[in-house]
Design a protein around this nucleic acid. Structure first.
Lengths: 159, 159
DNA sequence: ATAGAACCTCAACTAAAGTTGAGGTCAATA
DNA sequence: TATTGACCTCAACTTTAGTTGAGGTTCTAT
């Protein structure tokens, strides 16, 4: 099967549809990413988008970052901080992914702590304002000493 | 300081403001939770919300579930599946938190796998469609054999 | 009794990450 | 050449989890 551009050489440029098919993101998403400055396109004579092959790697990087939980706006900032929107190099990737790995590790640490608290609190079920590690991070009253605990001590009900 | 209800007994009912202060969520959020069926209120003669003390525990449970990443709609479903909107018992808590712990574990597992892939790919930077574990989960083309790889093999550029 | 804090409802707005649709153009094929 | 699929823009809509504001009422303290 011959290439659509009428040559035997592999085309340099991809259409949106091709990029969508290969990257696994919808055409509308590519449009959206473009409005957000995450990717760029050249235009054909008829105003249709044409992408260099390197856009696929860029999209791959975006999707990996998203999987780690980084918001698109942050991804955009980091990508645009690279000199001159050039094609992503292995060294860029190393730099970006180191940052994202740190973020990811932090998230994992937090979730793991939460899980461990959950595990140790399942049998207990107290959810005590004072004592439960699951609630304490949110207990702002404890600093103020508003008398909430007096009520708790005196009352028939618990929170 | 005397209680606002003019008795020396601890009040049974809390106002929205009190619940907000104690639970750490905004009044507007309590209204919002009510529209979503996550919490309920009684009304005073003047149509103001009055809450039983047990709402605090309910809100605590909601917030814990949210921290694990459960959407409010799911939390609502699970809470409303409990018989008759009764006050949450330790056994309810055990049941709910077991479910949520399983969810959380799954999320931790996925994120950990992602981190490990990230770690092993940082030095590499290939992001190869075929070989990179970071990209492969999304590679739908690989099943179809569309010739993408022929192009990759022949081309000067990589994706 | 009255000021001011706290409360009420309802509608509109926010943010993120897109999707959907209308109305129109471009390009490859029969 | 004509059709059909792929593409274009722009606006509006979706979901989640709320927040903000307008206009009006209730509660509590002085």
């Amino acid at each position: 099967m011959q290439e659509k551009n009428g040559t035997d050489l592999p085309r340099r440029e991809l259409t949106v549809g091709e990029v969508a098919a290969r990257s696994g993101v919808a055409v509308s998403t590519l449009h959206f990413y473009e409005t957000k400055g995450l990717i760029k396109s050249m235009r054909s004579s008829g105003n249709q988008r044409r992408y260099p092959r390197s856009v696929l790697r860029r999209i791959a990087v975006i999707k990996i970052a998203q999987r780690t939980g980084i918001p698109l706006a942050d991804i955009q900032k980091e990508l645009s901080a690279l000199p001159d929107d050039r094609q992503l190099l292995a060294s860029d990737w190393a730099h970006l992914s180191e940052n994202w790995k740190a973020d990811l590790n932090e998230r994992i640490t937090k979730l793991t702590a939460l899980r461990d608290q959950l595990t140790s609190c399942i049998g207990c079920g107290c959810l005590s304002m004072r004592d439960c590690p699951l609630r304490n991070p949110y207990d702002t009253l404890s600093e103020k000493g508003t008398g909430a605990y007096l009520i708790e001590h005196a009352g028939e009900e618990q929170d």
